[in-house]
């Protein structure tokens, strides 16, 4: 089955690219944008049909490789 993961910077960690995107959007007259945080998105095809097992495997992958927990949070969606 396919498992999807979103990795984002933790709150409080500076995201200069997100800031530039926000400023650009503001410059394009999207005045309502007050903050942008950029992240990463993974689609992982796991040879496992049991959803709980598949997600637990991906959770392990997140901790060991996909996210660096010093600055990033992850969410299996």
């Amino acid at each position: 089955m396919k498992v999807k993961v979103v990795v984002t910077l933790k709150n409080g960690v500076l995201d200069p690219q997100g800031k530039v995107i926000q400023q650009t959007l503001n410059g394009m007259n999207f005045d309502n944008v007050s903050e942008v945080r950029q992240g990463k998105f993974f689609e992982i095809e796991v040879k496992e049909n049991d959803e709980t097992k598949a997600k637990s495997l991906v959770d392990d992958m997140c901790k060991k490789l996909l996210a660096n927990l010093v600055i990033e949070d992850y969410k299996i969606v």
Partner: peptide, 11 residues
Amino acid sequence: LSGILQQNKYL
């Protein structure tokens, strides 16, 4: 080593 090297502040 602890910590991480992030992208430079001014990109």
